[in-house]
Amino acid sequence: MNRQFLQIESLAKRFPQPGAGEDVTVFDQVSFRMEQGEFICIIGHSGCGKSTILNVLAGLDAASSGSVIMDGREVAGPSLDRGVIFQNHSLLPWLSAFGNVAMAVRARWPKWPRARVREHSQRYLEMVGLKGAENKKPSQLSGGMCQRVGIARAFAIEPKLLLMDEPFGALDALTRGLIQEALLDIWSRTHQTVFMITHDVDEAILLSDRILLMTNGPDARIAESVRVDIDRPRDRAVLHQHPAYYPIRNHLVDFLVNRSRELQGADAPASAPEEAASPRDVNPAPRWRETGPGGSRAVASPA
């Protein structure tokens, strides 16, 4: 594993305030690292600048200060190495599901012959369970199916880093569950590095290896990095029976309800002196492996 795959160093975003001289700081001192193949979720209240961080990582927005280094190179501008799944699927409505995926594949590998583009796009559409709906336009598909196409499009270009901005926010709870499963499934096959924004605590626990917690904006920080120590593959149906589940969940909810406000503007305490820039590592369920008899077996998939 490449520990230095993605380094975010002291990122900050400030907006000039109309009239007043003082700039408004949305977030400051945002630093964290990502390993290759890691799935990280970031949670925080609205207005803490999560989307801005994601847009900076995507290269669609520029930070006021700080740097993003991926694979040893500084991120400047958008790139095919970083795929984005937007909040509202952002499919092109005049293209079919297949057309949307194929457009991205053609952009990624311009020299591929037609047949190869078709085969590749088709494979990813099948991975998200859209076999048979390839030729439908987005307006003929449900919101959940559109988001599946968006996922297929993002995974199909095989980016080094996949960025998701609340991809399931607009979906109803049942659809969301199904798409989370589709996402877990495609992720387990590709081991894509993913950075995802969510508002949903359960979604974060189900999907991620680590969860970054942000304090409230303005002047937001990343306060903690919570480790989700639950074996994969995870099964949504029995995840809540896992001994680590409630300790993690309670920790997250407590943070969002109370501490995200109390810590607002405070400098994040560092976990170790040599990693002064990184947020504190937290493991809310440190000893479940010893206490729970066969605890991990309970959630491991029957296969």
Binding site: A58, G59, L60, P78, S79, L80, R82, G83, V84, F86, N88, S90, L92, M103, A104, A107, R108, I157
Partner: peptide, 18 residues
């Protein structure tokens, strides 16, 4: 034209003409 669609094109590194 919706910003989202343009952002899709940008993240796919499409040229201006394309």
């Amino acid at each position: 034209v919706k910003r989202d669609w343009l952002n899709v094109a940008r993240t796919l590194e499409m040229s201006r003409l394309r």
